[in-house]
Design a binder for these strands. Sequence first.
DNA 1: TCAAAATAATTTGTATGCCTATTAATTCTA
DNA 2: TAGAATTAATAGGCATACAAATTATTTTGA
Lengths: 173, 173
Amino acid sequence: MHKLGNKFMVAEIMDNIRRVFQVVNEQSKKVEKETGLTGPQVWAIKVIAAEGTIRISDLAGRMYLHPTTVVGIIDRLEKRSLVNRVRSREDRRVVDVTLTPEGLQLVANSPEVASNKITQGLKSLNTPELTIIYHGLDKLTRILDATDLPPALIGSTEINLPKTNKRDVKGTD
Amino acid sequence: MHKLGNKFMVAEIMDNIRRVFQVVNEQSKKVEKETGLTGPQVWAIKVIAAEGTIRISDLAGRMYLHPTTVVGIIDRLEKRSLVNRVRSREDRRVVDVTLTPEGLQLVANSPEVASNKITQGLKSLNTPELTIIYHGLDKLTRILDATDLPPALIGSTEINLPKTNKRDVKGTD
DNA sequence: TCAAAATAATTTGTATGCCTATTAATTCTA
DNA sequence: TAGAATTAATAGGCATACAAATTATTTTGA
């Protein structure tokens, strides 16, 4: 075993945290190239596809984004005829979003988002390897006093990370 | 020692990665409240303060942002009389940015940015604890094929993460 | 019942963050 | 040395992201 200095390890840890951010962003660019859509747009479409039908506010909750932001994303997806907006009949305040046939086709061919890439990578590991990562991140979040924070975002696969996650998550998770 | 299932650990790891993102963003809000400036603005001011005088392109390199983005940030800081722009006499293409007295005063009172919070937390750990985090993150970045990526961003302490870091870093690091 | 509170989506405005020009100045090269 | 390539900063345009205010609808409560 090689003995590493604390200072070295701190620097390396910081670099590696940055690299995780990098992966998210690089993956985002790749997605953008392959689909012609931005990361959040692909992400939204994937969530909609998984749900079949979803309300704006629930979609926002799932994406850990503000409803405002999601409205804009849906606007642009609608303009490209990838999604439909339908006013709910039960509650006429609600807007239900669904995929158009074009949207369905696109989601079938779109590549993974960043969080999925990470998840896939993790799943390929054996237990001892996973354990190392698990304990390392566990300790890291502990020193950040972050263990009590609700997990959110990432998977954003995108440039712009949302500021907070304290919004109307309608228990959709 | 408790035996944990792989599935559980993968889920926990993902959550903890999200929490690291959270810390960055939460910290950003705190900074915003305390200074009245946004995270990137405070970050820029701190870099300028550290350098005394810095060119736009070098500032961009330091912040792992596009020069265009930095121009916007400097625009807003200039509007608040926190920084000055001076056209360099040696190379008249260059714009040197400095802090005004108000800017200097602000930087003295502004809180830590997120990456510093992480760094501080890490520094407080002993070697065995650090080693755990180090190996965990090392393994994580390996599975992401990210170890060869140049580390960048974060420390941004901010909402919007830059897309890439491949820009003119004038060896200022 | 009927006003008040809550909820869902949208609109408006600000701040990133990037890309693609564009302008001005400097350096390289034929 | 004149023209070409490079470099530095900026302008303009688009897409997030948020907060605050607005509109429409539903639910609560007096």
